[in-house]
Design a protein around this nucleic acid. Structure first.
Lengths: 155, 155
DNA sequence: CCCACTCGGTTGTGTCATGCAACCCAGGCC
DNA sequence: GGCCTGGGTTGCATGACACAACCGAGTGGG
């Protein structure tokens, strides 16, 4: 979808950000990355994305410095992709997308972002709704939400 | 780019949000809407987007309840598009995209989001960096940033 | 020694959503 | 009655995406 350039919007921060992460799969790949998915096949299975598309996206995110590719074993060489600082800084974007979707686009949240220290949930303002602490990607964990729980009960 | 459905991700809030606003132009149309652009031709001129694409996007955003279309004159009838509450709630997403872009994707911000009451700038956490107040779309105005100022000086 | 399996991809083909330009229509304006 | 403006629609071209097949290095089993 990306002609890669939004002509006439080169100086716009929003457009420039979208030029990097604004295509159909990149955001979902990043969502997975934030849940500690790191390997090619794990991304592929989790997302159901075509392998060539995944390969191209991981390569681009690596080129952009959002992911880092490093071997986690030799013999045979296997790689993993981890978020860099620049990548971790995308967290507010993911959270704001998640929160809007929770409110307007789905019946019940499929996952909760929970403050590890106190069990509160993250808010749109990136704070904990229980203790009020400002949160970052390292302060939280992802838990299955009501939708998943309900499905499990009804199954 | 949108097959409109991310198969297997129906329950995911992030994917669902992207299904609504995740295509190439929608986010930029919304950016304009937040700067009080309201008419078809104004959007078109500001963005340089193809008219059919703009038409289709405005229609979809209206269907989704993110924009509201109402006549602002009869004879001939002319319409304007305004953000609804649901649309205004997309503000955190825009701000987080803008802030990330300011930091990583452009040399100098082309626009600043400024707290109307005190002149401070909005932060990633949607607060004012001067007075600390929590901010929303109605509390701020958009000002030209360093990039624009520099261009004006050099011209 | 040969076959199968895993991980991490690349290649090739087809389709469908998207992008752009050109055109359309109605009402005023001069 | 020719041109401008606002608000679109139509038609053609492109290119992103989906899907499936293939590749190659290494490892493990019989």
């Amino acid at each position: 979808m990306l002609p890669r350039e939004y002509k006439g919007h080169e100086g716009c921060s929003v457009a420039s950000t979208l030029a990097v992460i604004g295509d159909r799969w990149t955001m979902l790949i990043l969502r997975e990355a934030f849940t500690r998915t790191r390997r090619f096949d794990d991304f592929q299975r989790a997302l159901g994305v075509a392998r060539n598309v995944l390969s191209e996206r991981l390569g681009r995110l690596t080129d952009e410095g959002i992911l880092e590719r490093s071997p986690y074993q030799d013999n045979p060489v296997r790689y993993e992709y981890r978020l860099t600082e620049k990548g971790l800084d995308l967290w507010p974007i993911l959270i704001s997308l998640l929160k809007w979707g929770d409110r307007y686009a789905v019946d019940a949240p499929s996952r909760l972002i929970v403050h590890r220290d106190c069990g509160g949930e993250v808010t749109e303002r990136l704070t904990c709704d229980r203790c009020g602490a400002p949160l970052g990607p390292r302060d939280v964990e992802v838990q299955p939400g009501p939708a998943v729980t309900a499905a499990a009960v009804s199954a």
